[in-house]
Design a protein around this nucleic acid. Structure first.
Lengths: 301, 301
DNA sequence: TTGTAGGCGTTATCAC
DNA sequence: GTGATAACGCCTACAA
């Protein structure tokens, strides 16, 4: 059905060697001008497309970067992926995109596949449920570059790109305190993920710094998604009216959105009854009726 | 620096042939049970990862699908990509994701790269500015499967997956008419893209069907983005108060969002002063203060 | 400037 | 069951 045109075909057509064709097409200086022109024109006529697979095999380089995210549509990942694509594109690379669906087994499978497909490097934001990180060390020993972003794994010698979560959380909380809020609750992410821990720490530190008593029941796990934020917020709303927090620091924007939904559904107003701040510049933020406020201009790209 | 483990290494280690190793690892039935176990265990010990590049070269199949979108973060594409990833993952494939940034030259380059990297098929949603489609025919002649989605190119024999744009637009408009709106404007997309034309047609047909006079100045080009929607809406708002439309059919949700911004900034209310409907179930929709209404449950996945 | 030999890591095919 | 050999399409290295 399909006749794949190869260097050989062009070579035969022109009665020259494969190497000359290869050189001509790759812009090698040591090739006769006339020959080069002939080669290029017949390549075009025959509809030649270079076979990067063959090239990759011999060069041991695929010019492809693997990307592993927990959920493609989730939070700021579309923008991150977009940013990554832009950068690698300019460098002459492509991205192979996989998502783990927050499932660590699937994440491992994705990384193994990427390793097998011989990507030149892997960018990964780890799944919530991760506990075993030996797969990363394994592929790193293969010479594969691994760089974490947003959700990092430390202590295995890979780089990490993320904002200063602890400090950001501290500043976000401080922001609320500066606005005279005292009853501040925190919707936290799963503690297995580093950003959750850092943000929780920042939150706690800020309270301490301002001598605001820490209340255990003001820390509610929300996970990273809207439904979790919603449920967590419901818990807080169901506290006796006097106990209810007046402000919320959500671990990220999706959780904040879920919480807002719960607040509005309960007939409460934002921020008059309960104020709320999120994280990570979700694209939806600018369209919200009540803008989420951010502590800093930190950019996560 | 890196010692790539190959079948050869395993074979040498065990003093057997490469083929036996290959067969053992691929679960061929015709291999001795003991040998297989030995092979598998030393493969594990040596840290062997199969080289899909080599495999692809001989099998002429990469198990990779190329995806080309105009903008990764734009409108419903994150969800579409997510859906695509889910499907191909289950089929044992991966996706190579590229974006054209609405630039047809970049789109062509992306497709050439994907063809060179020998993806097994390409899913593409074309850029706004596209005029020349010969690249698609070119790669199709190479035996590469091309399937368009959302923004299709017709008449070149490739499949297209999208909603019935004309009918949807017709129904959306009818919906407004049923609510007694008569002064209805349309923010249209670039006419080079098929969905823009279909939606415009649907809009016109609906007016005609209901004997509502068509006004040229009620059709404003907005493009597909928020900024365009904003500018287009400003034009309409700046009409003399009596001329102003009371309802808007936007070509897609981002344009609708931009328009809403313009409306609100002008101190008008939605939908009391101006009603607005979008398209394509943008993820932000459910969070909007004034929900965008949809004509049908059409799903674009 | 151009050509030849060999190999990248794997599988198809045919022998044993 | 297992092995040798020849591809797959290209490039490196060396020779002419």
């Amino acid at each position: 059905m399909t006749k794949r045109v190869t260097l050989k075909h062009i070579a035969n057509e022109l009665h020259i060697s494969i190497m000359t064709v290869s050189r001509a097409l790759n812009g090698s200086p040591s090739v006769d001008k006339t020959t080069r022109e002939k080669v290029i024109s017949t390549a075009r006529i025959l509809g030649y497309f270079p076979n990067h697979i063959a090239k990759s095999l011999v060069k041991r380089k695929t010019h492809t970067i693997g990307v592993v995210v927990p959920e493609i549509t989730y939070s700021f990942f579309p923008e991150a992926i977009r940013g990554i694509e832009e950068v690698v594109y300019k460098a002459g690379y492509n991205i192979m995109l996989t998502h783990s669906a927050e499932d660590s087994r699937r994440e491992i499978a994705a990384i193994e596949t990427l390793a097998s497909k011989r990507v030149d490097g892997i960018l990964v934001s780890v799944a919530e449920s991760d506990t075993d990180f030996q797969i990363f060390q394994q592929v790193m020993q293969l010479g594969l570059q691994v760089v974490f972003f947003d959700r990092c794994v430390f202590k295995i010698g890979a780089s990490c790109v993320s904002i200063d979560d602890e400090n950001s959380a501290l500043m976000v909380t401080q922001h609320l305190i500066n606005h005279r809020y005292k009853k501040i609750a925190h919707l936290r992410g799963p503690l297995s993920v580093s950003i959750s821990r850092y943000r929780l720490n920042g939150f706690k530190k800020s309270l301490k710094k301002n001598n605001i008593p820490f209340r255990e029941n003001y820390i509610v796990e929300s996970g990273f998604h809207e439904s979790g934020g919603y449920n967590a917020m419901m818990q807080l709303i169901n506290l006796p009216a006097r106990e209810r927090p007046r402000a919320i620091v959500a671990v990220n924007d999706p959780a904040a959105f879920g919480a807002m939904k719960a607040i509005l559904e309960a007939g409460l107003r934002i921020p008059e009854d309960i104020a709320i701040v999120g994280f990570s510049d979700d694209i939806r933020v600018e369209l919200m009726p009540t803008p989420l406020r951010h502590s800093c201009g930190c950019n996560k790209s």
